[in-house]
Structure formats: C-alpha cells, structure tokens
C-alpha cells in the first residue's frame, strides 16, 4: 500500500522544477488531471515529452510550464492545430520553447532504448527527410554487419513519467488495456513513475499476458476517477470529441485561453484521490 498517494502529493514530492517529464497515452488514457495539477503547482522550465502533445500539452505550454518540447505530432487530433503550441513556436508566447522533433517511430525507439537500458535506439528511418538535418538528435550509423545506413536516436529517459490506467490493486500493481500506446515503454524508460487510475480494486484478476506494471516499478499510484477526460478510459468513459472541437475556439485567443484555465483549472480544487 506504500505507493498510494494523493495526486497533489505525488506531483509535489516527485516532480521538480526543471525536470524532464513525459505524460503519455496515445489518444487513450491521457493523464489530464495530472497535467492540471502540474499547472496548479506552477512547475516551470520543464522538458515536456509526449508523442502527441494533444490538448494537455497545449494547456501546459500556454500556462508557461515548458522550456523544451520533445514530440512527433503536434496537432489537435481530428480537429486541426494546437494554438498554444503554435503561438509558442511561431510567436514565442508566453516565451520561446526549444523543440526536439522526431517521428512516431523514432519516439517509440527512444523509449524502448531507455527501457532496455541502452544509450540509443536504432531504426530504419529519416532517409531523405529534412528532419535529420534540423534535429541533432537524429543521426545515421552503418550497420556493422550489413553496412546498411540506419538512423540512431538517443534514449529518452525522463525524470518522471506520468500515465493514466484503468485500475490498480491495493498493493499498487497497475493494469491497463485497450489502445495501450507506449504506456509500458515510458514507464520503464523513466526514473520515477506516477500512475493515475480510474479505480482501486481488491484483485486485478488480470489475464496472464495482460499489460500489468508491478507495484515495485511504480513510484506512486493516485486514485483519480475521470483523470483521463476529455480523452478516454476504455471500459469507463468515451473520448469527449466535442471538448476537442470546442478547444479550438477556446485556445485560439490568448486571453480567452487564460480565462478558461483560471476558471476550470487554477481555481478548482484538486481531486482528493489517494488511498
């Protein structure tokens, strides 16, 4: 039961100013509540890591949490642009951010390399693409056996990884399913892992090959029902597509965005969570 914490305690204790933090979840199981707690606790100078920044990083970037962004696809899925991300890159508002831009495949390779304790990952990629020209973290190596030219990307080993999952048991073992994305990879890549869950159960009763993170690799488990909304938790609630569509309008204008964040994130009470 040792790793059960409230969300605000988990963020306060384990995430520090200037840290590299990954919040993962491929459209599914995005840890929105945790991102909001990071915003409320005014964590700054963070290196934010996510394959798809999504609305959660749009909010964190717009609220000034980010120094650097590591990503591979920065749109509002099914809708269009992430306006706060664009404002930061195009007009340096609220301040300039550095970007380390890879492809989806390269991000997954960077995570699996870190999870496997390797300094870099190797893949067949970026030949003919301009990305390698602008990103010093994409390099080419020759295969020592065949001579084939392959791309290499450094491992991404965040200080903290945060994911959402369906459930945990009282010992803090975590079980997730559906579109599992890179939840397991990023959890094993990071130095510390915070998992928010929909519910705490007595017995996970997970099938043999289920995606389970044993308690001893999870730093903190926080009970946060609804913690992935407006993304979704398979078996619990659907993706709120109307939120993503409405976000386009809210986020387009700086003041409108700040007012929304004040009313819906800053001035709200954090979820109780915990044991």
């Amino acid at each position: 039961m040792s790793n059960l914490l409230t969300l605000s305690d988990a963020i306060r204790t384990h995430l520090h100013q200037g840290d590299c933090v990954a919040l993962e979840g491929f459209t599914h199981l995005i840890p929105f509540a945790a991102g909001h707690e990071i915003i409320r606790q005014e964590k700054r100078d963070l290196t934010l890591v996510r394959m798809t920044p999504d609305v959660i990083f749009d909010q964190m970037i717009g609220m000034g949490c980010a120094k650097r962004l590591v990503f591979s696809w920065g749109g509002n899925p099914g809708v269009g642009s992430l306006h706060r991300l664009r404002d930061a890159v195009e007009k340096h508002f609220p301040h300039p951010i550095e970007i380390d831009e890879r492809s989806h495949a390269a991000m997954t390779v960077s995570y699996t390399a870190a999870a496997a304790g390797l300094p870099f990952g190797v893949m067949r990629g970026f030949l003919g693409s301009d990305l390698a020209q602008y990103n010093p973290n994409i390099k080419f190596i020759d295969c020592p056996f065949t001579g084939e030219r392959l791309a290499a990307v450094p491992a991404i080993r965040p200080d903290v990884a945060i994911i959402h999952a369906q459930r945990a048991d009282r010992a803090g073992n975590v079980h997730l399913w559906g579109i599992v994305g890179v939840q397991k990879e990023i959890a094993l890549a990071a130095r510390k892992v915070i998992v928010t869950v929909e519910e705490i159960v007595d017995d996970l009763d997970a099938p043999a090959n289920a995606c389970v993170l044993p308690a001893w690799v999870v730093t903190a488990v926080c009970h946060v029902p609804g913690g992935a909304a407006p993304s979704y938790a398979h078996g619990y609630y659907d993706r709120d597509n109307s939120f993503y569509q409405a976000w386009d309008e809210v986020s387009r204008d700086r003041e409108n965005f700040q007012r929304w964040m004040r009313e819906n994130v800053m001035d709200t009470v954090p979820v109780k969570g915990g044991a």
Partner: peptide
C-alpha cells in the same frame, strides 16, 4: 474515427498492439 486512437478502432480490431510494436 475522429482521432487515430478512437475506442471504436480497438473494439473492432483483430488485435491491438503497442505503438512501438506497430512501427517495429
């Protein structure tokens, strides 16, 4: 699907694998 990761895609798939597996 509206997004690439809609639940509908998972519910109607033969199998769902991790994002790293799909690319590798």
């Amino acid at each position: 699907p509206l997004s690439i990761g809609d639940g509908e895609l998972a519910l109607t798939a033969d199998t769902v694998v991790s994002t790293s597996e799909i690319f590798s």
